[in-house]
């Protein structure tokens, strides 16, 4: 179980949250404490448990054990009160085919009891969506834009987004990131689920990595990087490959031309040993670098 950082204003908290589907695993022992106004990435491959967690947060599913709270309200019992303050977009967004963008804004506004038309039109301009088109005539990308507009038009305090950049082109992905940053600056919490590492790295300050229904890392991107061991790539001059691998290195690839791997563990001693070893070898090229988020993520999954 990972310790959760304590903050004064926490928007989303889960405590030992577990959800199973009969004998099938869903998520287990999920602990989150997401501060208000933060951009939080929820990272994991398909089937890791991201959507299950979101469904519990939105009150679609009841937790098997543990608790989930948003804005200090219980996600199951107070679900409808929470949703007044939450904007959510599901991973596989489907909308009623007879809606147009305009009629959707009217309808959702009426259901929410708020006027969201003006803000909806502003968002449609940013995302370049024609609101007069019917959903049944929209492309997947257009539907996704409409879904995003509908979940943001009421200026929610919490945004729960399940793979929201699906079907968006790179330009629109960037516009969405800008919108989300603006929302976070205004104090809203963004819970951003994705299996695309690059966008989480680009947007989020903090990230949790989910593996087989459990959180295996929960930290800021900078901390994750600093905790990660240095990656090492050594290219040997022809015929110069040594026979023995020093203890400070843990190799994942070892050929006559190239050694690829990482420090056995992060620390000054191993780094010094590596540098001393390298100084006496016929090396053509050497790279020692901190890994990017993708490499960190892959390492968690390889373990």
């Amino acid at each position: 179980m990972l310790a959760c950082p304590m903050t004064t204003a926490v928007s989303i908290t889960t405590s030992a949250l577990t959800r199973t589907y009969g004998s099938r695993r869903g998520v287990s022992d999920i602990n989150l404490a997401i501060p208000a106004g933060s951009l939080y990435g929820f990272l994991g491959p398909n089937g890791a448990g991201k959507t299950t967690t979101i469904r519990v947060l939105l009150g679609f599913l009841r937790a098997s054990s543990g608790s989930a709270r948003i804005l200090d309200m219980d996600c199951w019992r107070d679900s409808h009160r929470i949703k007044a303050e939450v904007g959510a977009i599901p991973g596989d967004l489907r909308l009623w085919p007879w809606l147009t963008g305009k009629s959707a804004l009217k309808l959702f506004g009426r259901i929410r009891g708020r006027d969201i038309i003006t803000r909806g039109h502003e968002l449609a301009e940013v995302l370049e969506l024609d609101l007069s088109v019917k959903v049944r005539q929209m492309s997947r990308g257009m539907r996704q834009k409409l879904g995003l507009i509908l979940c943001m038009a009421h200026d929610p305090r919490v945004l729960i987004l399940d793979e929201p950049t699906t079907a968006l082109d790179p330009l629109m992905q960037e516009r969405l990131r800008q919108l989300l940053r603006q929302r976070a600056e205004a104090g809203a919490t963004v819970f951003f689920s994705s299996h695309t590492l690059a966008e989480v790295e680009e947007l989020c300050e903090r990230v949790a990595i989910v593996k087989q229904g459990q959180i295996v890392a929960d930290s800021t991107v900078t901390q994750l990087r600093s905790q990660a061991v240095h990656e090492v790539t050594i290219v040997w001059t022809p015929g110069g490959t040594p026979e023995q691998v020093p203890a400070c290195l843990k190799l994942s690839k070892q050929t006559a031309e190239v050694w690829k791997g990482a420090l056995a563990s992060e620390g000054q001693a191993n780094m010094r040993e590596l540098l001393a070893f390298a100084a006496n070898q016929p090396i053509a090229d050497i790279t020692i670098a901190k890994p990017d988020l993708e490499a960190i993520f892959m390492r968690y999954y390889d373990e």
């Binding site: 939105l58 009150g59 679609f60 679900s79 409808h80 009160r81 929470i82 949703k83 007044a84 939450v86 959510a88 599901p90 596989d92 967004l93 489907r94 909308l95 009623w96 959702f108 259901i111 929410r112 879904g147 509908l150 979940c151």
Partner: peptide, 13 residues
């Protein structure tokens, strides 16, 4: 139809 997620995400009990 897959629209139930949108329906249940609305702020109504």
């Amino acid at each position: 139809r897959g629209t139930v997620d949108v329906l249940l995400a609305l702020p109504v009990s």
